[in-house]
Design a protein around this nucleic acid. Structure first.
Lengths: 214, 214
DNA sequence: TAATTGTCTACTGTCGACAATATACAAAAA
DNA sequence: TTTTTGTATATTGTCGACAGTAGACAATTA
């Protein structure tokens, strides 16, 4: 499969990763011409990329002033995680999972613990994404899926820094198994609640760490 | 209050209204250079405006091919309305309203009926927006507020065409009073459910009309 | 005829340049 | 000193031009 990408798409990736890596700090200005020079392209694709990041909520834009990496306040973090719980919770509550699909999700929980123990962070995060993605996609609601994707990108930015401090391997497994158990119950209210709690807990935790750390 | 706007913002408004008015039909291509010539500006601000409309989900973009007014399938309409119910429903369930605020919302319901009877559509839509906005804002969750805004813009596009066929004046009032009554109950589950139902009903209705109409 | 290949055209992708302006900082005034 | 006013500059906003390509349609081949 050959994939044709534009400069814009590559720049989106580039900026996103620079923020993740901590090379671009919150509140710092992303200057179009500097980036253009750095990447040896013109400002046009840079601007397009910035617009995309703005719509996700990663970059803040002040007309005629500039583009800035957003400073995520504890409150913003909590809001985002709570909303993610609302979106994904709803998705799960209207989804119908077959037994083997639930087993599959369960196995992913087990694998999470292993990966966490081996410190394979990248694989672990990827597995987590897949786990939650399966749930969201199952809703078959495109608006929900689209919002969930935005929130997932945004969350990454929030937890990456605090990742190691959040949960021990066993907790990671257990927390996700709670969701699987709820799915087994086939009770929409229970399912919805379990996922909301899942995200709210993490949101609170990160928000608290963020508060202390500054 | 003096407001300084860029071309981009004005173009967003322009395109949005052209779609609402039916001058730009679903599936039709929005050609940058044509619009640029029409408005006597360059392509740059046009592109920026299009990117914004894309992120809302009003315009569809195929790389290297063009920008097209989205063709909203009945399923998309239902998805959007259901999601709006989920978002606003959550907002309402975590909000705490004072008695006088609830009275205020109730009065708005009464006024809706009057406006509907007098066929003051623009004012009526505006009042509806304010009603739902009050609920969303009260949640004090910026992520929720931001999603709600997107969904509101998108919904307008969906119902504008079918507006007169949806509800009679008394129904408009009664449907919103159901929400107010739920708020009075102070029961989060009841509140959340009432708003979800509110939007799901309308979504289904519009989706059905859309199916028939084509 | 039907399938393939070649060509043309209109559109988007990207460019570099200039215009407009927010901000910082210096100069002037109180 | 403190406040106001002017000025410089770096950055965004907009422009027009050119490059590259998707899609349409004609020409070619079987």
């Amino acid at each position: 499969m050959i994939k044709k990408t534009t400069y814009k798409d590559q720049v989106v990736e580039y900026i996103y990763k620079e923020i993740l890596k901590g090379n671009l700090l919150p509140k710092s200005q992303i200057k179009e011409s500097h980036l253009a020079e750095e990447l040896n392209i013109s400002r046009a694709p840079i601007r397009e990329a910035l617009r995309e990041l703005i719509s996700i909520g990663i970059v803040e834009y002040r007309p005629r002033v500039g583009n800035f990496v957003v400073e995520l306040q504890p409150k913003d973090i909590l809001d985002t995680y709570i909303t993610r719980g609302v979106i994904e919770g709803f998705a799960a509550s209207v989804s119908v999972f077959k037994d083997f699909e639930i087993d599959n999700l369960y196995n992913m929980c087990i694998e999470m613990e292993s990966l966490a123990k081996e410190n394979k962070n990248i694989e672990l995060i990827d597995l987590g994404d897949r786990f939650h993605n399966i749930i969201v996609e199952k809703s078959n609601n495109n608006q929900i899926i689209s919002f969930a994707k935005t929130l997932s990108i945004k969350s990454h930015l929030m937890f990456s820094k605090y990742w190691p401090k959040l949960y021990i391997p066993n907790q990671i497994k257990e927390r996700h198994i709670l969701i699987v158990d709820a799915l087994k119950s086939k009770n929409p209210n229970e399912i919805e609640k379990s996922i909301r709690t899942h995200y709210e807990e993490t949101g609170k935790k990160i928000a608290k760490l963020k508060e202390k750390g500054e």
